[in-house]
Design a protein around this nucleic acid. Structure first.
Length: 783
DNA sequence: CGCAGGCGGGG
DNA sequence: GTGTACGCCTGCG
């Protein structure tokens, strides 16, 4: 029979000694299904040294003790970094032994390289069969039994799966989890502290809450496993579920002799690639990965993400922090329950909001839905490239450890400090990808010999690297495909006859494409990249510098005042005719597109690069790089700078208003009018605490948390306040929940964190240090 | 006082 | 475990 189904997840297992690929899916009849494919062999490619015959190499490999796992050897014509390459493909029937085989083969003197052994069996399948996760496929299948597996039907594949030409998303059953751990002190420990409340919201509109009995959470856990089976979700959302929730649940369950068998095959959750937890047959998605990727979110919490999305309505609900749980459990249990309920509902809502995007990112990169968000940028770009490589007959290079060699980046101009009226910012459109396309910058077009006809090559300025003009290189084609498809999508989206459901999918798809295109240059300079070639990254920035330099020269020729520029942007006086001259010069002479990005009524620059603020033509305050947008300044300082910038930019002549604002601000802070939480400073612990070379405030605060039983790991953020008392700053940095408002050192906050950013803004606005000095001591005293 | 460590943001 | 350029606070000698 023929079957059409959507791929939710891919896995592999060995059944009756034969390895097989498992496709978990949803059929077009909306059944949850399992499809087994035993026709695919794990494989690797072997490239012989020059002069070694493929026959002799095959017999040498056959002579190794691994011969019994090799099922086929075949000479294939491939390319490697663009060069035609003859390789031998060895198919094997023991995917688990592929690395051992690869090492043995690699040690043969005849062997130049062993390739693609480092790609997992299931992913080799997806690449080779050209099948995408979250895509619809069609295949001939035969029904088979599915005892013990929670699906409606199971099949075995009789034909190769073919991608079907449809891009809708089946109606997925979604579930959101939230757990509250009852710890008397410090980080909850699954060997000690039970799960007090579990809240489970599902896309059928249901919210279930499970509560432990006394201090016993065993029933809660077994009920959860049962509920999971009943609701049978396709997608499970959590927040911090990869690092916390799943391990905790599993550990607690196992202590009670319960198996947390929530997978569709009855399995427990298990650690998988990219720090992701896999629940078989379902897509487990940790929304923390989403929060982490949105740079506007400074503190990556569920509430932070919800607020950013406008999902948590004002004062809807307040998060109960871990250190408060114990006392809530004692005296405010219903509030705690309500928090859990709200958190699970909110988690579900956020998950739903991002589902199309996750699906499209998964389809674009080929990374399965459950870990596409866990994979970092470099790996997403790389998976996109790996798919392109396979379709071009390119062998996939291995990861190689290399020494780090720095290279030059972009040009940043020193701004003209002060206030500037009537400014526009111009942005080169996708500068780096455009340059890579325009100059055919790619690992396979780079030529290292200098004995060539220079007319056939693009030669990078300053650095002199040479790239073949034709044929188009790997990067050029991969990027063109992305950019052209995205442009077509955007055109389609703007059409009026598109239905809302389809528009959402197309919008998500073009966003995913933008993400990969924007990350492509960074990938080329990543030392861990499979296609890393330093000259490619170095040449791209060199052409970037040349391009903006020519644009700067053009400004001078045209007589257009330039106030600032960074990498691919120029801030110029808004004189439309001159701006048009500049734009057309850039388009015709530099072969790059450029657009007007933002028109400002007024912009303020200090002496510093990468920091400015402006009021746009439509009246918005935009702050870039300044303390007001930095997550490591306390709220009080950020809000103050934003407010002052607003005053200055809206009416620069009103010096009095600015100075009066500062006077009253200082007074309000000193008198304790600001809420305590506005003084909390959040900083990331970037490495093991013992690795720090100097005593830093946030590190000492972290140590104080550890003494109180809190676990601190690299990547965690520590929130601390500075209290009055003797000693260095690091002696007085206390985790915010270990002290209170009465101890705050307001003088420190004012003189070191609040005032300096304000003074820099005032200075730039022409309100001199003397103006302030004159008032200091008389009107107000801030030191 | 100058330099280094550390962090987080910009394009 | 995408890149480089940059500013600012603090510790340290």
């Amino acid at each position: 029979m023929s079957l059409s189904f959507w791929i939710l997840d891919v896995a592999s297992e060995r059944r009756n000694r034969t390895p097989e690929v498992i496709l978990w899916g949803i059929s077009d009849g909306n059944e949850r299904i399992l499809v087994r494919d035993r026709s695919f062999s794990a494989h690797l490619y072997v490239v012989p040294h020059e002069g070694v015959s493929t026959e002799s190499l095959i017999s040498a490999v056959r002579g190794l003790s691994f011969n019994d796992i090799i099922t086929n050897a075949e000479v294939v014509r491939k390319r490697y970094f663009g060069n035609p390459t003859e390789a031998i493909r060895f198919d094997i029937n023991e995917p688990e032994d592929i690395e051992k085989l690869a090492r043995a083969v690699d040690s043969l003197p005849q062997v130049k390289m062993v390739l693609e052994h480092d790609i997992r069996y299931a992913m080799q399948y997806m690449l080779e069969r050209n099948v995408l996760p979250c895509g619809w496929v069609e295949a001939d299948v035969e029904a088979m039994g599915h005892q013990g597996i929670r699906v409606d039907s199971a099949y075995s594949l009789l034909s190769k799966p073919r991608m079907a030409g449809r891009d809708d998303i089946p109606k997925l059953r979604q579930m959101a989890l939230h757990a509250i751990y009852l710890s008397r002190r410090g980080t909850p420990n699954p060997d000690r502290d039970p799960i007090a409340i579990m809240s489970i919201a599902t896309s059928d509109g249901d919210v279930k809450q499970l509560v432990m009995e006394g201090e016993d959470d065993s029933k809660l856990l077994s009920d959860f496993v049962e509920l999971c089976g009943q609701k049978d979700p396709d997608v499970i959302y959590g927040f911090r579920s990869n690092r916390g929730l799943w391990q905790y649940l599993t550990r607690r369950a196992n202590r009670s002799g319960i198996s947390l068998s929530v997978g569709r095959g009855g399995e427990e959750p298990h650690m998988s690639v990219y720090g992701h937890v896999s629940v078989s047959g379902r897509a487990n998605v940790d929304l923390f990965d989403i929060a982490n990727e949105i740079t506007d979110i400074k503190l990556e919490t569920l509430e932070g993400l919800a607020d950013y999305l406008g999902i948590r309505r004002e004062d809807d609900w307040e998060a109960v922090e871990q250190q408060e749980v114990y006392s809530y459990w004692g005296s405010r249990r219903s509030d705690l329950m309500e928090f859990g309920r709200q958190a699970s509902v909110c988690t579900l809502e956020i998950g739903k909001r991002f589902l199309e995007y996750l699906v499209e990112l998964s389809r674009l990169t080929g990374i399965p839905l459950d870990h596409v968000m866990a994979a970092s940028t470099g790996f997403r770009v790389e998976w996109y490239l790996m798919r392109e490589a396979v379709s071009r007959g390119e062998l996939i290079p291995p990861r190689i450890e290399r020494p780090y060699t720095p290279y030059l980046g972009a040009i940043v101009l020193s701004p003209k400090p002060g206030l500037h009226d009537n400014i526009v910012s111009l942005d080169f459109k996708s500068m780096y990808p455009s340059l890579m396309i325009a100059y055919n910058i790619s690992p396979d077009t780079l030529v290292r010999s200098d004995d060539v006809d220079v007319n056939e090559y693009n030669i990078a300025p300053e650095v002199g690297h040479m790239f073949r003009r034709s044929p188009p290189g790997f990067y050029k084609e991969a990027l063109l495909k992305l950019i052209e498809t995205r442009d077509a999508l955007k055109a389609k989206i703007s059409r009026s006859d598109i239905k809302e459901d389809e528009r959402k999918i197309l919008e998500a798809r073009q966003m995913a494409m933008k993400l990969i295109a924007n990350a492509s240059y960074g990938y080329t300079g990543w030392i861990g990249a499979r296609w890393y070639v330093r000259e490619v990254a170095e040449s791209t920035t060199a052409w970037g510098r040349a391009s903006i330099s020519k644009a700067i020269d053009a400004c001078k020729r045209i007589g257009l005042e330039l106030v600032y520029g960074d990498t691919d942007s120029l801030f110029v006086r808004n004189e439309p005719e001159k701006v048009e001259l500049l734009l057309s010069f850039i388009r015709s002479e530099l072969g790059l597109d450029i657009k007007i990005d933002t028109a400002y009524k007024r912009v303020l620059f200090t002496e510093a690069k990468k920091r400015y603020a402006g009021i746009t033509e439509d009246g918005r305050l935009e702050v870039v790089g300044l303390e007001a947008v930095r997550g490591d300044y306390p709220n009080v300082a950020r809000k103050a700078q934003r407010a002052l910038l607003e005053i200055i930019l809206r009416d620069p002549s009103n010096k009095k208003a600015a100075l009066e604002f500062i006077r009253s601000l200082v007074e309000r802070i000193s008198s304790g009018s600001y809420p305590y939480k506005d003084f909390v400073i959040w900083k990331e612990i970037s490495k093991g605490l013992e690795e720090y070379k100097v005593k830093a405030a946030h590190v000492e605060a972290a140590k104080r948390m550890m003494e109180e039983g809190w676990e601190i790991n690299p990547g965690d953020k520590v929130g601390y306040v500075v209290v009055k008392g003797p000693g260095q700053l690091y002696d007085r940095s206390i985790p915010y929940f270990m002290t209170d408002k009465d101890h705050l050192d307001y003088e420190y906050y004012i003189s070191s964190l609040v005032m300096p950013p304000l003074l820099r803004a005032l200075e730039a606005a022409g309100i001199s240090a003397q103006d302030i000095q004159r008032r200091k001591g008389s009107l107000f005293d801030f030191t």
